[in-house]
Amino acid sequence: MLMVIGAVCSFGVALLASRMELLDKEGHPIYLLGRAVWFWPWLIWEIIKAGTDVSKIILSPKLPISPTLINVRASQKSAVGIVTYANSITLTPGTVSVELEDDEITVHAITRDGAEDLAEGHMDRVVSRFEGEGAL
């Protein structure tokens, strides 16, 4: 019941805001919702794989880390796409995006393999597909 009232209220506020022409496309990328249905499960699976890898590294007694800095080029066209890519990199354990300018992201990876996987650009292509035709 409470949830229904809340949903009605937020819908009403959105309606008012759009009538006052306060909305823009970037703040409310609702056109991405359809593609998010397959993007989020893919991202969660990636996180689980990378997370178990990092856990193994932490638990192994020798601590076999080989920290690497690498520059990655983002092929997304819009700001929303690039931010999605950088956030996906950071959310995946083992890689953290340190610095971002235009379409170049500096990434700190905990192992060399992780950095090379990222440089291959599989995640980049998937995020580009997620961004798709609805780009700004």
């Binding site: 880390i65 080989s66 920290p67 690497t68 800095l69 690498i70 520059n71 953290v96 995006s97 340190v98 610095e99 971002l100 300018e101 235009d102 170049e104 992201i105 500096t106 700190h108 060399r112 950095a115 440089a119």
Partner: peptide, 25 residues
């Protein structure tokens, strides 16, 4: 991470593939 980098703390690296170039600097 960005604040740490700007404060001048450099990460201990085994492999630096950026060639000393960091985006935005």
């Amino acid at each position: 991470a960005q604040a740490a980098l700007h404060a001048g703390i450099l990460p201990k690296l085994d492999h630096d593939k950026t060639g000393g170039h960091i985006a935005g600097e």
